[in-house]
């Protein structure tokens, strides 16, 4: 597969996410008061307002909340990959995130499909979380 670009530039707020991903782990911020996860990262829990947050691993399991098959790439760097599936996954822990579905034909994608996290190493510093059908591995 060709490289996905542009790659993310982590900052102090998001560094734990990208460091974990590079270790092939999905970690999300969790509130110490109400114990709920949230994403994207914030300064305070969006559920209860508590500012005592820490990063914890999640199961990496979830389901397709919505998806789109992209036929016309936004830029040249994505053009070799069309058609590709951009999805919003609802994690079992609650938060949603945007991702790419991999190892699945666009026609086989459905809302509600069970998926699990996978990782694609992009270079020495960056690994992108992707999702594939649960229980499937090529």
């Amino acid at each position: 597969m060709t490289a996905l670009t542009p790659l993310p530039s982590p900052n102090p707020l998001t560094e734990p996410y990208w460091q974990a991903a590079h270790q092939r782990q999905l970690k999300l911020p969790r509130c110490e008061a109400c114990t709920k996860f949230h994403f994207y990262p914030r300064s305070a829990c969006p559920h209860c307002g508590c500012r005592n947050l820490s990063w914890h691993a999640v199961s990496g399991n979830g389901e397709v909340y919505s998806y789109t098959v992209v036929y016309r790439a936004p830029s040249k760097s994505f053009a070799p990959e069309v058609p590709y599936v951009v999805a919003v996954v609802a994690l079992d822990e609650g938060p949603h995130l945007m991702t790419r579905l991999t190892q699945i034909a666009p026609d086989d994608v459905r809302i509600g499909l069970r998926v699990t996290v996978d990782f694609r190493r992009m270079d020495d510093e960056t690994t992108l979380p992707l999702f594939r059908r649960a229980g499937w591995s090529l």
Binding site: L4, T5, L7, P8, V70, Y84, V86, R100
Partner: peptide, 17 residues
Amino acid sequence: AQFETPYGPLVASNYAL
């Protein structure tokens, strides 16, 4: 820029979702 753009959505993809 970090959590979405690397996956290649168009503005239209966001609305497609």
